[in-house]
């Protein structure tokens, strides 16, 4: 039932700590308020945390900071007592190999096959030669198959990514995570293109796998009900700050009403209108005239 456990059983999750951390998006205007303002948060190794909050609350920026993709402007970020931004670049890149960030838009090249996309999760643990050989003949077909099976996509193993629907691509992106040699999973809106049934199934798989491997899991979620029912701990964010940080059982109706004040439609789940319909034919190749 667990995929690639051999890699990670002796390798439990990372712990992380943010102290008074502020961060701004690199593309933000200089006058705009920082996306994160004075966030303090501690997540222990092997914990599973959901982050909820209305659009623009800073959830994605927080994940970017946790993934060492965005340096904080103020405050400190430590991963297992290491300060990532004080490490030399090579050591930082090694540390990044222990993190798995799944962006909201699945990062899959359209013309790649699903098996290659999933096995790409292993790259940080592979040498260059092994990764080239795996392009020529997929290195571990059974592992890719099992990871896809957890998300009901086993039959798409040798399909091309651009033949998949948006929801299928998102699940392929999550299946890649199962193969990553990671100790911390950072999953951004994993359900944005999935229907309710698939959503529950996907999140249950992620939480289950994270628990089985004792990994740390931080996921941002739009679906409040999914967050409350599947995660032991829920952090509410609003305006770049932590509004509440509670065990799921203690999150009350009142907390949620206050968190989503003026964003009630998001609380009711009305933002979820992305369909799971198959995508159109692959885009024609743009010709460069030079």
């Amino acid at each position: 039932m667990t995929v690639a456990t051999a890699l990670t059983t002796s390798n439990p999750g990372l712990s992380l700590q943010l102290v008074d951390l502020s961060a701004r998006h690199p593309a933000a205007r200089s006058g705009a308020a920082a996306a994160l303002r004075g966030v303090s948060l501690r997540v222990n190794a092997g914990e599973q945390v959901a982050i909820i909050g209305p659009s623009g609350a800073g959830k994605t920026t927080l994940l970017q900071v946790l993934a060492c993709a965005l340096p904080p402007t103020e405050g400190s970020y430590t991963l297992d007592d290491q300060h990532p931004w004080q490490l030399p670049r090579r050591a930082l890149q090694t540390l990044r190999g222990q993190l798995f960030l799944a962006p909201q838009v699945p990062p899959l090249p359209p013309r790649q096959r699903v098996v290659t996309s999933v096995l790409a999760g292993r790259l940080p643990a592979m040498g260059l030669w092994a990764s080239l050989r795996s392009l020529f003949y997929p290195g571990d077909i059974p592992a890719a198959f099992q990871a896809l099976e957890r998300f009901d996509l086993a039959e798409k193993l040798f399909e091309r990514v651009d033949r998949l629907s948006g929801g299928e691509r998102q699940r392929v992106g999550l299946a890649r995570g199962l193969l990553a040699p990671a100790r911390l999973w950072l999953i951004d809106e994993p359900l944005s293109a999935l229907d309710p049934t698939r959503s529950r199934q996907a999140i249950a798989t992620l939480v289950e796998e994270a628990q089985a491997r004792q990994l740390t899991l931080v996921a941002t979620l739009h679906q409040v009900d999914v967050a409350l029912s599947h995660f032991p701990r829920v952090v509410g964010m609003r305006d770049g700050q932590v509004a509440f940080d509670l065990p799921a059982a203690q999150v009350s109706r009142e907390h949620l009403t206050r968190l989503y004040d003026q964003y009630e439609h998001e609380l009711r789940g009305e933002v979820l209108v992305v369909s799971d319909a198959p995508s159109a034919a692959p885009q024609p190749v743009a010709m460069h005239c030079r």
Partner: peptide, 21 residues
């Protein structure tokens, strides 16, 4: 970019990300 952010090497990111694109 995602491959690099997740700790892949430059050449790995080239062969698994840029080249197929």
């Amino acid at each position: 970019e995602t491959l690099l952010r997740n700790g892949s090497g430059r050449l790995q990111a080239f062969f698994y990300g840029l080249l197929p694109t």
